[in-house]
């Protein structure tokens, strides 16, 4: 039997308490489209109005959210076969102490994991000057691909936040893994 007590026993109050305790502002699971991005931005804007942080920090949060949502909509893989088909994409915005935390999760094909991991490690290894040079190199030398991406999203996020990515890949089956990315944004900058 499935253990979904929150639904069957009207325990949404407990879910609310849990989310409040964890300081989760926004949690979305499902299909990632441009309309969803607009909705998320609208919601986040309203919620951020009540939080005492600078405009600069608010804009950083929007910037990172936009890149995260568009990264997922352009690059996440989909599976039609269980178990991987059950793993939809997820986005979470919360805050801990003096940081906002944005986490995303999505499916990725196992064969792409290694090259993607090296890309994250490479970005994590760069100084702000190195990131700036990489950004310029990509924006000048690359064109948008057929999905309308240019491979700048993660570099841009790393530059805007000045933080290192935390990530993990959990293998689901022979073909797919679940990719989790965590981005911190300081409230003070």
């Amino acid at each position: 039997m499935e253990n979904n007590e929150i639904l069957t026993k009207s325990m949404i109050y407990d879910l609310f308490k849990e989310m409040t305790k964890e300081n989760i502002t926004l949690l979305y699971q499902g299909d990632f489209s441009q309309n969803l991005m607009k909705a998320i931005l609208g919601l986040t804007e309203k919620k951020m109005d009540n939080i005492e942080v600078s405009t600069n920090v608010k804009k950083k949060v929007f910037n990172v959210l936009v890149e995260c949502v568009q990264n997922i909509s352009k690059h996440s893989d989909e599976s039609k076969e269980p178990p991987a088909s059950k793993f939809t994409s997820i986005l979470m915005l919360g805050s801990v102490n003096d940081q906002f935390i944005i986490s995303t999760g999505n499916l990725i094909e196992n064969k792409k994991v290694e090259s993607f991991k090296s890309k994250i490690l490479m970005i994590n290894s760069l100084t702000s000057e190195g990131l700036k040079n990489l950004y310029k190199k990509i924006i000048v030398g690359h064109s948008l691909d057929e999905k309308g991406g240019i491979g700048l999203g993660l570099v841009h996020i790393a530059r805007k936040t000045g933080e290192k990515f935390e990530y993990r890949f959990d293998k689901i089956d022979e073909q797919y893994s679940y990719f989790t990315l965590k981005v911190n944004i300081s409230k003070i900058k």
Partner: peptide
């Protein structure tokens, strides 16, 4: 501009 995404940043260039 108030803000722009990375795809737009290429097109601005």
């Amino acid at each position: 501009l108030e803000y722009f995404n990375t795809a737009s940043s290429k097109l601005l260039l």
